[in-house]
Amino acid sequence: MTRAIFYKEWIKLRWLLLAISLVFAGSIPYFILNLTNKFRFAGKPHFWSVIVGKDLNLISELTYIPLLAGLILGLAQFVPEMQKKSLKLTLHLPHPEKLTILKMLLFGSGTLVSIFSITGLVLYLSLSIYLPSQILVAWFTAALAWYLAGLAAYFLAVWVCIEPVWKQKAINTLLAIAVIMLFFKGTSTYSLQYAMPLYIGIILLSMCFPFYSVFRFKEGVQQ
């Protein structure tokens, strides 16, 4: 059944996952070209000093991309289920309901984590040709919060999406926005380093939230 669920999700999301992968993979040559371009204009030693002195983060254009990826993936995975009422069918499969939803969530979050970690790792290794680890660790400490925001956004989007009552949907949306805002409070490269345990806690908690909406959906709570 696990393979069947994963296959169903793959069929539904494969083009979107490809598009997300292409955006993240495409950002790698962009960041490298952007960096080498700046090196050519300012000179490597000077530009290193500028990066360090001004706490410049050249991958900051990545900030909201994981958030958008998580949000779109969550909506793309569950909006069709809600519109076509196919979630009702899914929950009637000869398989424990909670496990079915868990596997759907695992597929979504797993692919998201894979895209984030593979492209993130390739970006780190590519940039390490030009920059020392002292700069890259600082940049990726800031970027970790953005990637985690993407993951949290995915679970929160599913939570909002499955919720059957519109008033509750609006409340959930407001709470989700407040949660996501917590990830974008950083002002310098290292400013979020102590917030990482909080972000991981938020992700673990937000993994549970969609199940609350599923319970309500199953109970037939309506407006």
Partner: peptide, 18 residues
Amino acid sequence: MTKKNIKTLLILVSTALL
């Protein structure tokens, strides 16, 4: 994990957010 447990979690998280 029961619905009641998740609701409790949601209330506590919302309290912290507020």
